[in-house]
Structures are given as structure tokens and as C-alpha cells.
Design a protein around this nucleic acid. Structure first.
Lengths: 213, 213
DNA sequence: TATTTGTAGTGTATATCGTACACTACTATC
DNA sequence: GATAGTAGTGTACGATATACACTACAAATA
């Protein structure tokens, strides 16, 4: 085999980490310590290590830079424009991560609502746009949305999460009809208590759920 | 800025090139000259050069290894399992390419129907599966299928292409109704001649077509 | 020139799915 | 006892997807 004749680009992974909070879709940005774009907001990211699978890089970065573990991850796309990093050729494999609502966060960085993002470093605005588009598109035809939910939730909470992601409001009866028709929700039998309203049934996501019928 | 502290993976682009021929969805494989997997069939691929955008690598490879130019390209996904190449760490950005039917082909390699593929090198079988799934999925909700057509075509030809991609047969009247309803087909006014049957209207794909109405 | 072959082109009826829309009942709080 | 606030429910309509069969025409052939 011919050995590699060309200077190798550096390879990184960048993460677009979403959560729903305050009825808003938010993502995590970290302020850069170094040049270039020192002080600017940027996606958490890091170099791919030797013998490290790409998704492992994503997990590691999320754990190192955001103290997050056990997170839903999906590869988004790879960004390789030669000038995207002014220092050197850096190709970045972007992933998006989904956190369950209400999990709390103690790590560094800041959460920004997607409709109020600051200027970001490199081509991160472009990566973020791609991630938001993909998340919204997949919400309707996949089960991805459940990764934004805690293990147990009410239908109202589920609806609010969807509304936050899509940035639009949904009809309550149609939403519930549709959600239940997918056969992915299992009633726990438990109900909420507290609040000046009737208790609500608590559901859990169940991939291969037989409904209680 | 800290310089890159880790050995860099090699970065390549691999191409899954589709065409429809003989009412079958086919893709291009090239026989490997070198170890590893010497003699095995593999996707055309090549290293990303310095300052070369990823899509430019894809074009260059397609032109160098398959003598194809001006081809529809779309990024598929990036494959980076550490053991996917036995020599060295090689991360590959996969693209898929679509060729218009009936264009002819004089380059090296061989076209294989997707339901009769040989064993392939590396993780190329996995890449191919991903590409086929993506192509089939996007056929229904995007205009991607027109990239598999020549500039002008009849509705019957269009239908046969779709049937080849999906590997299933479609109802003629419903297909035509649906195809025309999309407002992407412009009647050229020309008709086919020859063949023991009436002439068929020839259409062209038109992104922002006002219909002849 | 009559017949055959093969494809072009067309419409309707039904089922399914998506969407719009409003009220009652219950729990907690004041 | 009254009020506030959310849970939970059904129907009617329109749009969309699907199933389904015949006639007309050009070319080839007999």
C-alpha cells in the first residue's frame, strides 16, 4: 500500500447539544479560551484520538467539556471547507446530542434558546442550522423526540416539548390522538398530583410497547 | 493555540455511484489493485488533499477513477470505526453520486445491480446499505430522483426509474397523477416516435416550473 | 391492407389520514 | 363556596393515497 502522501487534515468532532427548557429549544455553547475567536461562543468540540471511534469522541467531549454522560447522540454531517478554521485545515464531524428535559445542568458553558443565539466561532452557525433542521425534520418521522423527555412524562409535557422544538403550537386533541396511535407510549398507571387541576396520566416511552388496550 | 497533539487519522472520501440500467438500480465498484483486500471489489475512493473541500475530493475521485464529470453528489455520512482499515486509522466521508440513465460508461470498474452485489472490501457493504436506504428514502420527499434521469424523458421512463430504485412496482395512473401534481415537470411539446405504440409526451425536469396549464 | 402487438393516456370510487374545533370534570387554592 | 387551571374527550370535513380497466394509436407483421 502506498502510504499517505498528503498532509492530513486535523479531524475534530463538534457537538450540537439540545434540550428543552422553559418551553424553549436550547443548545449549549462554550466560550472559547484561545485564539482564534477567543472569547466567542462555540460548540463544544475536540480532536479525534487515535483508535477512538467518532461517536466515542463525541461522548468524551460531552463528558469532558460539559459533564454530560449517557446522552443520545446522532451523527449530523461532516464539515470540511478548507477555510473553516483559520489556523489549519480542520475537518469536523458534527453530532447532535439530545438531553432529557428537567435534568439540570452544572457544567460550564451556557444554554441559549435557538431563536436567540449569539454570534458563534468558525462555521458553527452553519452547523447549528443544519442540526436544527434535522432535529425538526426527524421529530415527525422518528422517535427521536422521546430522547428529549425524562423517563416518565405526561402527554401535556410531551406536547410542550414538541411545540418547543417546532416553535409552533399544536392542537391538543390531535396531538394526543397521534401520539397514542404510534403505539410507543405505555401508561404507567401512575398519575400526577398537585396543581389546581385533575391528575394527569404518566406515560413512558416504550420502543416495542404492547398497548394496555 | 495548542497544536494538534494526536496522530491524525487519514481522511478519505468514498463514493457510492448509482445509476439505473436495464430497469435495475446499479452501483459502481472497482477492483482493488493493492493489499489489503487485493482483488476485492470496493467503492471508488481517495484521500482528501490539502485545501481541498470534501466535495471536491469526491468530484476528483469520480473523475480520476471513473472518468465521470458533472455528477450529482450528496454527502452521506462519515465512517470512522478504528478497525475499518487494517493498515491504519482511516476515516472516510462517504458521498453518493447519481448518474442519469442511458449515459453510457467507458471507465474502469463494473456496475452491479444492488440486489446482486459481490463481497466488498473494508466496511463498504455497510456504506452501501446506508446509501441505498438514503436514496430510497429521499426519492419520495425530494427531487433527487430526477438526477437519475436524462434531461428529457417520458413519464413511463420516469416511472421505471422509480420502480428500479424502490424495487417495487407502482400504479401507472397514480404515479402519473402524483408526478404531475408536483409541478416539477415541464412538457417539452415533443413526442417520442418509433415503437409499436402511440407517441409519448416528452418532459423535462424544471425546478421552478410554471406548468403549461 | 388487415391484423397483431405493445404502450400512451385517462377517471372514479373508497379508504385513510390530517385538521379544525369546544366543553365538562376534577383538584387545589383562596 | 368560589375560583383557577389543566385533564381528557369526539366529530365533521377536507385532502390525500390507493385500487382498479379500458380505449386509442403507431408500428410491425402477415
Amino acid at each position: 500500500m502506498v502510504t499517505y502522501e498528503y498532509p492530513r487534515p486535523a479531524l475534530t468532532v463538534d457537538l450540537v447539544t439540545f434540550r428543552v427548557n422553559n418551553d424553549q429549544l436550547e443548545l449549549l455553547l462554550i466560550q472559547r479560551d484561545n485564539q482564534p475567536f477567543q472569547g466567542a461562543w462555540a460548540l463544544p468540540g475536540g480532536f479525534v484520538h487515535e483508535n477512538e471511534p467518532l461517536e466515542a469522541t463525541a461522548s468524551r467531549v460531552l463528558s469532558a467539556k460539559a459533564e454530560l454522560t449517557d446522552v443520545f447522540l446522532e451523527q449530523l454531517a461532516t464539515f470540511g471547507a478548507p477555510e473553516r478554521d483559520p489556523r489549519d485545515r480542520v475537518v469536523s464531524v458534527a453530532y447532535f446530542a439530545l438531553l432529557p428535559a428537567g435534568a439540570g445542568y452544572n457544567g460550564p458553558g451556557e444554554w441559549f434558546a435557538v431563536d436567540g443565539l449569539p454570534q458563534t466561532a468558525f462555521d458553527h452557525a452553519h452547523i447549528i442550522d443544519t442540526a436544527i433542521d434535522r432535529l425538526r425534520a426527524k421529530l415527525s418521522y422518528s422517535d427521536i423526540g422521546f430522547s428529549l423527555m425524562p423517563p416518565e412524562f405526561t402527554l401535556t409535557e410531551l406536547q410542550k416539548t414538541w411545540e418547543a422544538v417546532l416553535a409552533s403550537s399544536l392542537d391538543k386533541r390531535n396531538f394526543r390522538k397521534g401520539a397514542l396511535a404510534r403505539d410507543r407510549l405505555e401508561a404507567t398507571g401512575k398519575k400526577t398530583s398537585g396543581g389546581a387541576h385533575p391528575p394527569a396520566m404518566i406515560y413512558r416511552y416504550n420502543d416495542s410497547s404492547e398497548m394496555t388496550s
